[in-house]
Design a protein around this nucleic acid. Structure first.
Lengths: 232, 232
DNA sequence: CGGGGTCTTGACCGTCATCAAGTTGTGTGG
DNA sequence: CCACACAACTTGATGACGGTCAAGACCCCG
């Protein structure tokens, strides 16, 4: 188990949604940290629920596999975000979760979290707020056209990675296939749209390194579909 | 304002997710009840957030309107369910909400809810559980085929209306257009799929009265995708 | 009994899935 | 460090599903 109080840990922790609470609790919240390599499973569908996970680096996807073996991605979870709330109601995990890229997560026992809440009411509101925020994600993805969906996906990514509008270059952590499964499109379509966006000078992309060249243009495409995907 | 303690009110209240808490709080939770007729607005996008609403009859939809005037439905909320949690994070409502059919709602001041929680910790877990449950809704709707989406929609409806598998006849509260906007399809497609499902003896539907004749068949479609016609 | 909204059905056409082949990237072992 | 193998990605050709337009039937409410 990693040293939870090392300076390196603290630096990744600053992004975490629970940072202030975790800190005041002297990290008793975090029972352990885990390093996952690409494609490594965090938990499996129907595993019983004990932990909330905080992503400290990388990204996690939750997904199902249908009878034809097709993977269907429910959500991506990025650095600083919390994962596992969907299991509270059922008491088991309704999806499997794997890392889409090398990742680190903190394991937070749900019982500890509840205990801390009873001592700290403001954490309660904070948690509800965080959970509430999740309702805003993953919308707009039912938009009609493939281009629209991808534009919305990019905007959500920019938003959730807390990128400044001056520095819109970043690393797509997941594969084209992951994006395709998330958006309900074919990987070929993802490819084609990316190249089209690049030809039109809206983005530049090489491998997983992407840079938004024309944010307004992307927003326009997204908004042709949906007004106010701009929490941005 | 309706008499909150009348027997008729109490009977609709039994279905409510907050029934036990509301009852022990002598209904101080509910500041007022409101009757909405079809298409009546409950609140508008960007209204400031003060209330959680409990649906006691009918159904509410939350939606956006895009630049082309196209409505896009985010979620339906059915009898007994709670509405408004998506506003906690932003402190304003991220969508507009209207009744898709004649409906009744209870207005619950969020401040009251928080106050009650501080006195009653088990309500806290209950609430998190309810919110957690919402993550399970509205999935599978990005499935490939229109038939799949509609099958998933029907299954979710059966689940959320708490229908027994012996009595699968019920009232579709919303219009074909609402369903279309929810699933990201054209209303004509909804129509066509319904008639196809009826021809294949999977459902019977007349106007908004629908009956599931072959639950296993619907589940099959939902999970596996479109059967080719030789299967019928 | 109208009249407007909702629903159904048909014809046509565009977008995207599918299949297939080729290219590039990545990781492993010699 | 290179060679090889496999995965990931790109690009093209083709066809099906579902969107769009249009017309007609049906339902509900005054």
């Amino acid at each position: 188990m990693a040293d939870l109080n090392s300076t390196t840990v603290q630096s990744v922790c600053r992004k975490c949604a629970l940072f202030t609470f975790c800190e005041t609790a002297d990290r008793s919240l975090v029972s352990s940290r885990k390093t996952l390599h690409r494609k490594e499973l965090l938990y499996t569908y129907h595993d019983s629920f004990h932990f909330i996970y905080a992503i400290s680096s990388g990204a996690i996807k939750t997904f199902q596999v249908d009878l034809e073996g097709q993977e269907r991605i429910h959500q991506f979870y990025y650095c600083g975000e919390l994962l596992g709330f969907d299991a509270i109601h059922t008491q088991y995990h309704p999806f499997s979760a794997t890392a889409v890229a090398p990742s680190q997560v903190c394991r937070i026992p749900y019982s500890e979290l509840l205990a801390l809440i009873s001592k700290n009411p403001s954490l309660y509101e904070k948690l509800l707020s965080l959970v509430s925020q999740r309702f805003h994600f993953g919308l707009n993805l039912m938009s009609n056209s493939a281009e629209q969906r991808i534009a919305c996906f990019l905007l959500e990514l920019i938003n959730r990675l807390h990128l400044q509008s001056e520095a819109l270059g970043f690393e797509l952590l997941m594969s084209r296939q992951d994006i395709a499964h998330y958006l309900g499109l074919a990987t070929e379509t993802i490819s084609r749209v990316f190249t089209r966006l690049q030809q039109n000078q809206l983005i530049s992309i090489v491998n997983k390194r992407i840079k938004i060249l024309d944010l307004a243009g992307i927003q326009w495409i997204a908004q042709k579909g949906v007004r106010d995907s701009s929490d941005y």
